[in-house]
Simulated assay, not measured.
Amino acid sequence: MISGAHVILYSQDAEADRAFIRDVLAFPGVDAGGGWLIFKLPPAEVAVHPTDGPPQHEFFLMCDDLDTQLGEFRAQGVEVTRPVSEQRWGKLTAIRLPSGAELPLYEPLHPIAHSL
């Protein structure tokens, strides 16, 4: 039986991004050995979208109130990398990880599955 999902983010500065996830996002975690941190994620859901191009995977964080969340991030010095855009399915933006990578985040306007 499937018991969970394991998401991997590849990073040019894994230690800094792990510290960001621990300290800024405040996700609890475990040390899998040698400082290799693995974090508990909030409830999750998966969607499968059609594509005409090569298959790819994306990772987004979801929030209930994007404007409030962005205010909290800005107060902590987190860079917001994209202006908030209104999509048919939600409000979308992204923040900068210490490694320079973007982490998309959105406030869904669609029914959510993660609490089923």
Score class of each variant (00 low, 15 high):
residue 87 Q to T: 02
residue 76 Q to H: 02
residue 83 P to D: 10
residue 96 R to N: 06
residue 81 T to Q: 08
residue 103 L to W: 09
residue 86 E to M: 05
residue 92 L to Y: 12
residue 84 V to P: 04
residue 83 P to I: 02
residue 89 W to G: 03
residue 85 S to W: 00
residue 79 E to R: 14
residue 97 L to G: 05
residue 81 T to Y: 07
residue 82 R to P: 00
residue 75 A to M: 04
residue 76 Q to F: 02
residue 91 K to V: 02
residue 95 I to T: 11
residue 76 Q to K: 14
residue 99 S to H: 06
residue 81 T to R: 11
residue 74 R to I: 10
residue 81 T to P: 02
residue 74 R to W: 04
residue 83 P to R: 10
residue 94 A to W: 00
residue 83 P to Y: 01
residue 79 E to L: 12
residue 87 Q to C: 07
residue 86 E to N: 10
residue 88 R to N: 11
residue 101 A to N: 14
residue 97 L to S: 08
residue 79 E to W: 06
residue 81 T to S: 13
residue 86 E to A: 11
residue 78 V to N: 09
residue 95 I to G: 14
residue 77 G to A: 12
residue 84 V to Y: 03
residue 76 Q to D: 03
residue 83 P to W: 01
residue 90 G to K: 07
residue 96 R to W: 03
residue 93 T to W: 04
residue 86 E to L: 02
residue 90 G to H: 08
residue 87 Q to A: 13
residue 77 G to V: 05
residue 90 G to L: 07
residue 78 V to K: 08
residue 84 V to W: 00
residue 90 G to D: 06
residue 98 P to A: 12
residue 91 K to N: 09
residue 92 L to C: 10
residue 79 E to S: 11
residue 91 K to H: 15
residue 86 E to I: 07
residue 97 L to P: 02
residue 76 Q to I: 00
residue 74 R to K: 15
residue 78 V to Y: 06
residue 87 Q to H: 09
residue 84 V to F: 05
residue 85 S to L: 01
residue 82 R to G: 01
residue 85 S to F: 00
residue 102 E to W: 10
residue 100 G to W: 03
residue 91 K to A: 10
residue 80 V to M: 01
residue 77 G to E: 07
residue 85 S to N: 13
residue 99 S to L: 09
residue 99 S to V: 11
residue 103 L to N: 14
residue 92 L to V: 14
residue 94 A to T: 07
residue 75 A to R: 06
residue 99 S to A: 13
residue 94 A to M: 05
residue 81 T to W: 08
residue 91 K to L: 15
residue 84 V to C: 07
residue 92 L to G: 07
residue 98 P to D: 11
residue 100 G to M: 06
residue 82 R to V: 01
residue 93 T to K: 05
residue 87 Q to V: 00
residue 95 I to P: 07
residue 101 A to I: 00
residue 100 G to F: 03
residue 98 P to M: 08
residue 95 I to H: 07
residue 98 P to L: 12
residue 95 I to K: 06
residue 75 A to S: 14
